[in-house]
């Protein structure tokens, strides 16, 4: 049983598939009229958010509530929390109040690791995004979405062997890209990163991925099964990573013309929120190939599965 989910790389192939399988059961619950399980009754889950992210927070909140856990939302941004010691104080405060699990979102890379290895806290810890490092539940929900698109009702037990995934955009600063890389490697998929050279790491030698500068060439030559567009953060736009938004959209943005080049079975993902017209145009975002809303729905099921796996201590036989 795992106690922490800090990195998508923490999961073995079997553990990852088990979480995805549990999430299948959770997805069924989410289809029911009464979308609730008693599994985590009496447990307290704290959403500790040092950074704004309404989507991720409500996804975790809904996941915990559907498992009947008590949920506390602690939004630390904008309060006196800006210096490092506050992470410690906040964590110890939550510990003193008896939190069973802490879901942490923090602007500093490694914040969840520090929390896990500091002895400030005894409960389970879920990394809900740390700086430009990782966002493991996003990778899990993406893998879940891929599996579902490909295998439908027969998804259980499946990995992603041989799947060709092109991840496009600001790879350098993307925790989504890092977590997806690790989990997709674990599940047997083939990862291709596509980005302007300024938005790739200077030394990616430890990465098991192929790197490309040209989106069009990648689409044409690699014929990916999945194209995942990454969000371009506003703070990159005036920092000389690329000359202009227009040029970025033209060369690395996904649009209707590129949509036509995808093979029929291929699909298009985006972790949201989208910059429509920048990394993805409206036609592509709203096309049948787009999985954006499925990803949101699957996010709740996957986070239910993660909280369940960390907190229940039991196998998922009763789901």
């Amino acid at each position: 049983m795992i106690k922490y989910l800090l990195s998508a790389g923490d999961l073995t192939r079997d553990q990852a598939i088990e979480i995805l399988d549990i999430a299948e059961g959770m997805a069924d619950v989410n289809e029911r009229e009464i979308k609730k399980l008693p599994t985590l009754r009496g447990k307290t889950v704290v959403n500790l958010f040092f950074e704004d992210s309404t989507r991720t927070r409500i996804s975790f909140e809904l996941a915990a509530k559907r498992l009947s856990a008590d949920v506390i939302n602690f939004s630390a941004k904008g309060s006196s929390v800006s210096k490092g010691e506050s992470l410690k104080d906040t964590a110890q405060t939550l510990e003193a109040m008896g939190a069973d699990a802490v879901v942490i979102r923090h602007p500093a890379s490694g914040a969840a690791n520090v929390l896990a290895h500091s002895n400030w806290i005894n409960g389970a810890i879920v990394n809900a995004g740390d700086g430009t490092h990782e966002h493991p539940t996003q990778a899990l929900l993406d893998a879940f979405t891929m599996r579902k698109r490909i295998h439908g009702a027969n998804s259980k037990g499946k990995a992603l062997e041989g799947l060709k995934v092109a991840i496009v955009g600001d790879v350098l600063h993307s925790r989504v890209a890092r977590s997806n890389l690790l989990l997709l490697n674990t599940l047997g998929a083939e990862v291709h990163f596509v980005a302007p050279p300024t938005l790739l790491p200077a030394n990616p030698s430890n990465w098991k991925a192929k790197l490309h500068y040209s989106l069009d060439e990648t689409l044409e030559l690699e014929k990916p099964d999945v194209v995942m567009m990454l969000r371009v953060q506003a703070e990159r736009m005036n920092a000389s990573f690329f000359p202009s938004e227009r040029e970025y959209a033209r060369i690395w943005g996904f649009n209707a013309d590129r949509l036509k080049t995808l093979k029929p079975s291929a699909f298009l993902m985006h972790p949201g929120p989208m910059n429509r017209g920048l990394e993805i145009d409206a036609i592509s975002a709203d096309s049948p190939q787009s999985t954006v809303l499925e990803q949101v729905a699957n996010g709740v099921s996957v986070r239910m599965a993660v909280l369940y796996s960390l907190l229940s201590g039991e196998r998922a036989a009763d789901v």
């Binding site: 890379s109 490694g110 740390d130 700086g131 430009t132 490092h133 990782e134 600063h173 925790r175 890092r178 790491p201 200077a202 030394n203 990616p204 030698s205 430890n206 990465w207």
Partner: peptide
């Protein structure tokens, strides 16, 4: 934050 290299790429820390 740390040496820019293979490890910073993995850790997501500014090089």
């Amino acid at each position: 934050q740390m040496n820019e290299g293979a490890v910073s790429a993995e850790l997501g820390l500014t090089g």
